Simulated assay, not measured.
Amino acid sequence: MGTVRPARDKGGRPDTATALRLSHAILDAAERIFLAQGFTGASIEAIATAAGTSKQTIYARFGSKEKLFLAVSERLLKPKFPVQPSGDASLAARLGTAARQILAAMLDPKMVRMYTIITAEAHRFPELAHAADDNQSFPARLLVLHIIEQALESGEICCDDPASAMLMFQDMVLAAPLRSTALGIRKWTPQDLERWADSAVAIFLNGVRSSPL
């Protein structure tokens, strides 16, 4: 693969379009190599060679191998959450939309692979595991937290800790499907996932509603 040769402006820096293309090239190469070789097996040198750039450039742009891995994960996840649940919809409908997007995002084969990489490497790279589990690393968490906080303000639900409620909802929706998919012990059909999402929302709401259904 030919080296990307940034166009230079008068200050010696690559122009914006060239810099953006180089970032995309680095992320493309990192995605391929991380997915194929895992976190330990992937080297920054190999990623730099595949992207047509240098290790120094990658470190300057992303800071570390862990941050590059997270940038790949973020780029894979971000397009998976195109729909913001309508504020006019019912609480069940808003949570249902979020649940379906969570399942579609995380059961994508690439994200399942990223999850297994993080799980396998957590004991060797605890900083990577902690960073990957941060709310900012998973768009769904902030989305669900916003829905829960809105429902609290309107009096639709009652809970002492919205952040903990958000994590409980995430795990009710995602934990079993992701685990069984990663282990290869179950193949979930779209119909299975629809039913699972609906059940998770119903059980969650029965636990946090302000008054009985």
Rank of each mutant, 00 (worst) to 15 (best):
H130K: 12
P212S: 01
A163H: 12
F169T: 13
D161T: 11
S137Y: 07
K187S: 13
F69K: 01
Q136E: 15
A129P: 02
G12S: 02
L174E: 05
P6L: 05
R21C: 08
W196D: 00
N135F: 02
A99E: 03
K187Q: 15
A19L: 12
M172Y: 13
A132G: 03
P82V: 02
G41I: 14
I148Q: 06
T3K: 14
M172H: 07
R209Q: 15
E194F: 05
I157P: 15
M114Q: 07
P85F: 13
R209E: 13
L91D: 10
R186C: 03
M168D: 10
D134C: 01
P79T: 10
A197W: 10
L183E: 07
R124I: 11
L91Q: 02
I117M: 00
A60R: 01
V83P: 08
R21N: 15
A197P: 10
A51Y: 11
I117P: 10
K67Y: 02
L213N: 02
I117Y: 06
S199F: 01
A165Q: 15
G155A: 08
K67Q: 15
I58C: 04
I44L: 15
A104Q: 06
L22R: 15
M111T: 01
Q150I: 03
F39W: 14
G12T: 10
D160S: 14
R21E: 14
P14V: 15
D9T: 13
V208M: 00
T18G: 07
F125Y: 15
F138R: 09
A175G: 07
G184P: 02
M172V: 12
A25S: 12
K110W: 02
A7G: 15
S137G: 08
L178H: 07
I147M: 03
G184V: 03
L152S: 04
R179Q: 13
G41M: 11
N135A: 13
W196E: 09
P212I: 02
R179K: 12
D161K: 00
D161G: 01
L183A: 06
D15P: 06
Q136N: 10
F69N: 03
M111N: 10
I147C: 04
Q101C: 08
A46R: 06
D9K: 03
P126R: 10
F69L: 02
A46V: 11
E153L: 09
P6W: 04
F39L: 05
R195D: 13
